[in-house]
């Protein structure tokens, strides 16, 4: 019964599109393009124009500043640490929620989304109440958490927590347990199953979630501002340093930092789009 017929690769499912130009399609296009232009594109264009107006040399000059450089460094450390925590936590929680049934599961699932709903500044205040020297754990934490990097990482993790988990959960749900159980019956232990089966299954969704989380962590302002105390040259991040520059009437410096943050965001979005295209092609 050896079939020699070659089975064609099934094309990825494509959402059927309406090709015809109708009144409705023109109306929707007008609304869509108008909305994006007015609210997103126009401000970004103006910002880019304003940032580059003094000339590229002047922009680079503004960025070549001890405080600014330090702020970017802090952003890199805080965002980097937060993303690592987000990733570990996100993968663990996603596997827990998809593969296990336990009391409180739905509550946990709901609570994971809480950070998206809460205003970042409220997150900052809440952390202050718990971890500041006068807070609940104050005797334990002293000033090592609040007005220091650990607190900033904590705040950043809080606001970006669900991004990785939410990116992975649908993929894990779709994959089901069969592959994992097949691997188990073939002799693979839990670690081998995670590395050889689960991780390759979720790798693209995971990469997408990590990119989203990284973008969110780099841009976080409110929660970090409250927790960091915004000490110049110590706990300032890129976004909070923009505020400092504006208060010091150094508009060119502020726009130069904004330009860098914007370029990072563009890169993240392009990377995300590229990853999603690979995902749609069926890995």
């Amino acid at each position: 019964m050896a079939e020699s017929t070659i089975v064609p690769i099934a094309p990825a499912p494509v959402t059927p599109r309406r090709e015809r130009v109708t009144g409705a399609s023109i109306g929707l296009r007008t609304i869509g393009i108008g909305y994006v232009s007015l609210i997103v594109l126009a401000p970004i264009a103006v910002l880019l124009y304003r940032a580059l107006k003094p000339g590229l040399g002047s922009v680079l000059n503004s960025l070549d500043d001890v405080e600014t450089q330090h702020a970017f460094q802090v952003t890199a450390i805080v965002a980097g640490s937060a993303v690592v925590i987000d990733t570990v936590f996100g993968v663990a929680v996603a596997i827990l929620l998809v593969r296990y049934r336990f009391p409180g599961r739905r509550l946990l699932s709901a609570f994971i989304d809480l950070p998206i709903a809460v205003s970042p500044i409220v997150v900052g205040l809440a952390l202050l109440l718990v971890y500041s020297p006068t807070g609940w754990f104050g005797t334990l934490t002293q000033d090592h958490v609040i007005t220091a990097k650990p607190g900033m990482v904590l705040a950043t993790v809080f606001v970006s927590l669900p991004l990785v988990a939410r990116a992975i959960i649908p993929v894990l749900e779709q994959a089901g347990l069969d592959q994992d159980q097949a691997a188990a019956s073939l002799g693979a232990n839990a670690f081998a199953r995670f590395v050889r089966i689960t991780l390759p299954t979720i790798r693209i969704a995971l990469a997408y979630g990590v990119v989203l989380a990284l973008a969110r962590c780099i841009g976080e302002y409110g929660a970090v501002l409250v927790v960091s105390g915004n000490i110049i040259g110590q706990t300032e991040t890129g976004p909070t340093h923009i505020n400092t520059e504006l208060e010091n009437f150094n508009d060119d410096g502020a726009y130069a930092i904004a330009l860098v943050l914007m370029l990072i965001a563009f890169a993240a979005i392009l990377l995300g789009a590229y990853i999603r295209r690979r995902q749609r092609r069926g890995n």
Partner: peptide, 21 residues
């Protein structure tokens, strides 16, 4: 015994193929 120590081969209705391999 855990499944991996039972020395059984298992075939699933929906194949359970390792899709990335």
């Amino acid at each position: 015994l855990a499944p991996r120590h039972r020395d059984v081969g298992f075939v699933f209705q929906h194949y359970a193929a390792f899709t990335h391999l």
